[in-house]
Protein backbone atom coordinates (compact mmCIF):
# COMPACT_ATOMS: atom_id res chain seq x y z
CA UNK A 1 0.00 0.00 0.00
CA UNK A 2 1.28 3.42 -0.91
CA UNK A 3 1.13 5.94 1.94
CA UNK A 4 2.84 8.86 0.21
CA UNK A 5 2.50 9.80 -3.43
CA UNK A 6 3.76 13.00 -4.97
CA UNK A 7 2.99 14.01 -8.55
CA UNK A 8 4.84 16.99 -10.01
CA UNK A 9 4.84 18.67 -6.61
CA UNK A 10 6.15 22.24 -7.00
CA UNK A 11 6.72 25.14 -4.63
CA UNK A 12 7.69 28.59 -5.82
CA UNK A 13 8.66 31.54 -3.62
CA UNK A 14 8.26 34.44 -6.02
CA UNK A 15 10.49 33.68 -8.98
CA UNK A 16 12.53 31.12 -7.04
CA UNK A 17 11.47 27.50 -7.51
CA UNK A 18 12.39 25.73 -4.29
CA UNK A 19 10.85 22.41 -5.28
CA UNK A 20 10.63 21.66 -8.97
CA UNK A 21 8.08 19.07 -10.15
CA UNK A 22 9.06 16.15 -7.91
CA UNK A 23 7.28 12.80 -8.19
CA UNK A 24 7.75 9.70 -6.02
CA UNK A 25 5.89 7.05 -4.05
CA UNK A 26 6.54 5.57 -0.62
CA UNK A 27 5.24 2.16 0.53
CA UNK A 28 3.86 1.50 3.98
CA UNK A 29 6.54 0.41 6.46
CA UNK A 30 9.31 1.65 4.21
CA UNK A 31 12.27 3.71 5.41
CA UNK A 32 12.58 6.37 2.76
CA UNK A 33 15.72 8.53 2.75
CA UNK A 34 15.39 12.04 1.37
CA UNK A 35 18.88 13.30 0.57
CA UNK A 36 20.19 16.57 -0.78
CA UNK A 37 22.65 19.37 -0.09
CA UNK A 38 21.60 22.37 2.01
CA UNK A 39 19.21 24.48 0.01
CA UNK A 40 18.28 21.66 -2.37
CA UNK A 41 14.63 21.92 -1.24
CA UNK A 42 14.35 18.97 1.17
CA UNK A 43 12.77 20.85 4.04
CA UNK A 44 10.33 22.70 1.76
CA UNK A 45 9.20 19.42 0.20
CA UNK A 46 8.74 17.90 3.64
CA UNK A 47 6.77 20.87 4.91
CA UNK A 48 4.38 20.49 1.99
CA UNK A 49 3.87 16.81 2.76
CA UNK A 50 3.15 17.65 6.42
CA UNK A 51 0.47 20.15 5.46
CA UNK A 52 2.51 23.11 6.78
CA UNK A 53 2.93 24.70 3.38
CA UNK A 54 0.67 24.75 0.34
CA UNK A 55 2.14 23.51 -2.96
CA UNK A 56 2.17 25.99 -5.85
CA UNK A 57 1.19 23.21 -8.23
CA UNK A 58 1.11 19.44 -8.44
CA UNK A 59 -0.59 16.84 -6.31
CA UNK A 60 0.37 14.95 -3.18
CA UNK A 61 -1.41 12.27 -1.17
CA UNK A 62 -0.34 11.50 2.39
CA UNK A 63 -2.03 8.73 4.41
CA UNK A 64 -4.87 8.77 1.92
CA UNK A 65 -5.53 12.51 2.01
CA UNK A 66 -4.85 15.20 -0.56
CA UNK A 67 -2.28 17.64 0.92
CA UNK A 68 -3.79 20.88 -0.33
CA UNK A 69 -7.39 19.91 0.52
CA UNK A 70 -7.17 18.07 3.84
CA UNK A 71 -4.05 19.22 5.69
CA UNK A 72 -5.86 18.85 9.04
CA UNK A 73 -6.66 15.16 8.39
CA UNK A 74 -3.06 14.54 7.44
CA UNK A 75 -1.84 16.13 10.66
CA UNK A 76 -3.86 13.60 12.66
CA UNK A 77 -2.03 10.72 10.94
CA UNK A 78 1.60 11.81 11.04
CA UNK A 79 4.38 12.40 13.50
CA UNK A 80 7.06 15.03 12.99
CA UNK A 81 10.50 15.67 14.41
CA UNK A 82 12.15 18.88 13.29
CA UNK A 83 15.72 19.83 12.56
CA UNK A 84 16.04 21.75 15.77
CA UNK A 85 15.71 19.43 18.67
CA UNK A 86 12.27 20.52 19.71
CA UNK A 87 10.99 19.70 23.16
CA UNK A 88 10.41 21.90 26.16
CA UNK A 89 13.82 22.06 27.80
CA UNK A 90 12.55 23.31 31.13
CA UNK A 91 9.98 20.56 31.51
CA UNK A 92 10.75 17.12 32.88
CA UNK A 93 10.98 14.08 30.62
CA UNK A 94 7.60 12.67 31.63
CA UNK A 95 5.97 16.13 31.40
CA UNK A 96 7.12 16.46 27.79
CA UNK A 97 5.74 13.02 26.97
CA UNK A 98 2.42 13.80 28.61
CA UNK A 99 2.17 17.20 26.89
CA UNK A 100 2.87 15.93 23.39
CA UNK A 101 0.77 12.80 23.83
CA UNK A 102 -2.12 15.07 24.82
CA UNK A 103 -1.52 17.44 21.92
CA UNK A 104 -1.41 14.58 19.43
CA UNK A 105 -4.70 13.25 20.72
CA UNK A 106 -3.72 10.19 22.78
CA UNK A 107 -6.66 9.50 25.14
CA UNK A 108 -5.97 10.66 28.72
CA UNK A 109 -6.42 7.17 30.15
CA UNK A 110 -3.68 5.74 27.98
CA UNK A 111 -1.10 8.44 28.50
CA UNK A 112 0.51 7.13 31.69
CA UNK A 113 0.60 3.59 30.34
CA UNK A 114 2.26 4.73 27.11
CA UNK A 115 4.71 6.92 29.01
CA UNK A 116 5.90 3.94 31.02
CA UNK A 117 6.19 1.81 27.92
CA UNK A 118 8.12 4.48 26.05
CA UNK A 119 10.57 5.04 28.92
CA UNK A 120 11.07 1.31 29.35
CA UNK A 121 11.79 0.86 25.66
CA UNK A 122 14.41 3.61 25.80
CA UNK A 123 15.73 2.33 29.15
CA UNK A 124 15.11 5.84 30.48
CA UNK A 125 13.12 4.85 33.57
CA UNK A 126 15.70 6.49 35.83
CA UNK A 127 15.44 9.79 33.93
CA UNK A 128 11.67 10.14 34.17
CA UNK A 129 11.94 13.14 36.48
CA UNK A 130 15.03 14.67 34.89
CA UNK A 131 14.75 18.02 33.13
CA UNK A 132 15.11 17.60 29.38
CA UNK A 133 17.88 20.19 29.24
CA UNK A 134 20.06 18.03 31.49
CA UNK A 135 20.12 15.14 28.99
CA UNK A 136 22.90 14.60 26.45
CA UNK A 137 21.96 15.49 22.86
CA UNK A 138 21.85 11.89 21.64
CA UNK A 139 19.34 11.03 24.37
CA UNK A 140 17.24 14.07 23.62
CA UNK A 141 17.01 13.01 20.00
CA UNK A 142 15.94 9.48 20.91
CA UNK A 143 13.35 10.90 23.27
CA UNK A 144 12.09 13.35 20.63
CA UNK A 145 11.69 10.51 18.14
CA UNK A 146 9.81 8.35 20.61
CA UNK A 147 7.54 11.29 21.43
CA UNK A 148 6.93 11.93 17.71
CA UNK A 149 5.49 8.40 17.37
CA UNK A 150 3.79 8.19 20.77
CA UNK A 151 0.37 8.36 19.06
CA UNK A 152 1.27 5.51 16.64
CA UNK A 153 0.99 7.58 13.44
CA UNK A 154 0.96 6.01 9.98
CA UNK A 155 3.96 8.03 8.90
CA UNK A 156 6.72 9.84 10.77
CA UNK A 157 8.65 12.68 9.14
CA UNK A 158 12.18 13.22 10.45
CA UNK A 159 14.00 16.37 9.37
CA UNK A 160 17.73 15.79 9.91
CA UNK A 161 17.05 14.06 13.21
CA UNK A 162 20.62 13.14 14.11
CA UNK A 163 22.48 16.40 13.49
CA UNK A 164 25.49 16.96 15.74
CA UNK A 165 25.96 13.52 17.29
CA UNK A 166 28.64 10.86 16.72
CA UNK A 167 28.13 7.74 14.54
CA UNK A 168 27.63 5.50 17.60
CA UNK A 169 24.70 7.61 18.82
CA UNK A 170 23.34 7.71 15.27
CA UNK A 171 23.40 3.89 15.16
CA UNK A 172 21.38 3.70 18.37
CA UNK A 173 18.92 6.18 16.93
CA UNK A 174 18.53 4.07 13.81
CA UNK A 175 17.71 1.05 15.90
CA UNK A 176 14.66 2.95 17.09
CA UNK A 177 13.76 3.76 13.49
CA UNK A 178 13.93 0.06 12.56
CA UNK A 179 11.70 -0.83 15.52
CA UNK A 180 9.12 1.70 14.35
CA UNK A 181 9.28 0.43 10.75
CA UNK A 182 8.77 -3.13 11.99
CA UNK A 183 5.54 -1.98 13.63
CA UNK A 184 4.37 -0.72 10.22
CA UNK A 185 5.18 2.98 10.67
CA UNK A 186 6.49 4.52 7.47
CA UNK A 187 9.63 6.58 8.06
CA UNK A 188 10.42 9.55 5.85
CA UNK A 189 13.84 10.90 6.80
CA UNK A 190 16.08 13.66 5.49
CA UNK A 191 19.77 13.52 6.25
CA UNK A 192 23.24 14.81 5.40
CA UNK A 193 25.00 11.74 6.66
CA UNK A 194 25.75 9.21 3.94
CA UNK A 195 26.31 6.41 6.44
CA UNK A 196 22.66 6.89 7.37
CA UNK A 197 21.61 6.75 3.73
CA UNK A 198 22.92 3.20 3.64
CA UNK A 199 20.40 2.22 6.33
CA UNK A 200 17.38 3.28 4.24
CA UNK A 201 15.30 0.92 2.11
CA UNK A 202 15.28 3.45 -0.71
CA UNK A 203 16.76 6.91 -1.10
CA UNK A 204 16.03 9.87 -3.34
CA UNK A 205 18.63 12.51 -4.02
CA UNK A 206 17.52 16.09 -4.57
CA UNK A 207 19.61 18.54 -6.56
CA UNK A 208 18.40 22.11 -7.19
CA UNK A 209 14.81 21.28 -6.31
CA UNK A 210 14.60 18.21 -8.56
CA UNK A 211 14.89 14.53 -7.69
CA UNK A 212 17.88 13.36 -9.74
CA UNK A 213 18.04 9.78 -8.50
CA UNK A 214 15.70 7.40 -6.68
CA UNK A 215 16.48 3.77 -5.91
CA UNK A 216 17.74 1.43 -3.22
CA UNK A 217 21.25 2.28 -1.97
CA UNK A 218 22.47 -0.99 -3.47
CA UNK A 219 21.17 -0.19 -6.97
CA UNK A 220 22.36 3.41 -6.85
CA UNK A 221 25.89 2.30 -6.05
CA UNK A 222 25.82 -0.07 -9.00
CA UNK A 223 24.27 2.50 -11.31
CA UNK A 224 26.91 5.13 -10.54
CA UNK A 225 29.69 2.58 -10.14
CA UNK A 226 30.47 3.87 -6.66
CA UNK A 227 31.89 2.16 -3.57
CA UNK A 228 29.54 3.93 -1.17
CA UNK A 229 26.66 6.40 -1.02
CA UNK A 230 29.04 9.29 -0.40
CA UNK A 231 30.48 8.88 -3.88
CA UNK A 232 27.04 8.58 -5.44
CA UNK A 233 26.00 11.77 -3.72
CA UNK A 234 29.07 13.70 -4.79
CA UNK A 235 28.70 12.71 -8.43
CA UNK A 236 25.14 14.00 -8.44
CA UNK A 237 25.79 17.08 -6.34
CA UNK A 238 28.63 18.21 -8.59
CA UNK A 239 26.03 19.26 -11.14
CA UNK A 240 24.28 21.58 -8.64
CA UNK A 241 24.04 25.24 -9.60
CA UNK A 242 22.65 26.62 -6.32
CA UNK A 243 25.04 27.62 -3.59
CA UNK A 244 24.57 25.77 -0.37
CA UNK A 245 23.53 28.28 2.26
Amino acid sequence: MKVITAENLTKKFGSFTAVDHISFEVEQGEIFGFLGANGAGKTTAMRMLCGLSKPTSGKGMVAGFEISKNPEKIKANIGYMSQKFSMYEDLKVWENIRLFAGIYGVPDKEISHRTDELLKNLQFEGQKDALVKSLPLGWKQKLAFSVAIVHEPKIVFLDEPTGGVDPAARRQFWELIYQAADRGITVFVTTHYMDEAEYCNRVSIMVDGRIDALNSPQNLKQQYDAANMDEVFHRLARGAKRNSD
Binding site: E72, K75, M81, S82, K84, S86, Y88, E89, F100, I103
Partner: peptide, 14 residues
Protein backbone atom coordinates in the same frame (compact mmCIF):
# COMPACT_ATOMS: atom_id res chain seq x y z
CA UNK B 1 13.08 29.77 18.22
CA UNK B 2 13.12 26.46 20.06
CA UNK B 3 11.41 24.68 17.17
CA UNK B 4 8.51 23.57 19.33
CA UNK B 5 6.18 25.83 17.35
CA UNK B 6 6.69 23.74 14.25
CA UNK B 7 5.92 20.55 16.14
CA UNK B 8 2.77 22.15 17.51
CA UNK B 9 1.73 23.27 14.04
CA UNK B 10 2.15 19.76 12.64
CA UNK B 11 -0.03 18.42 15.43
CA UNK B 12 -3.76 18.02 14.83
CA UNK B 13 -4.45 21.12 16.95
CA UNK B 14 -5.76 24.17 15.13
Amino acid sequence: EMGTMEVLLVSPMK
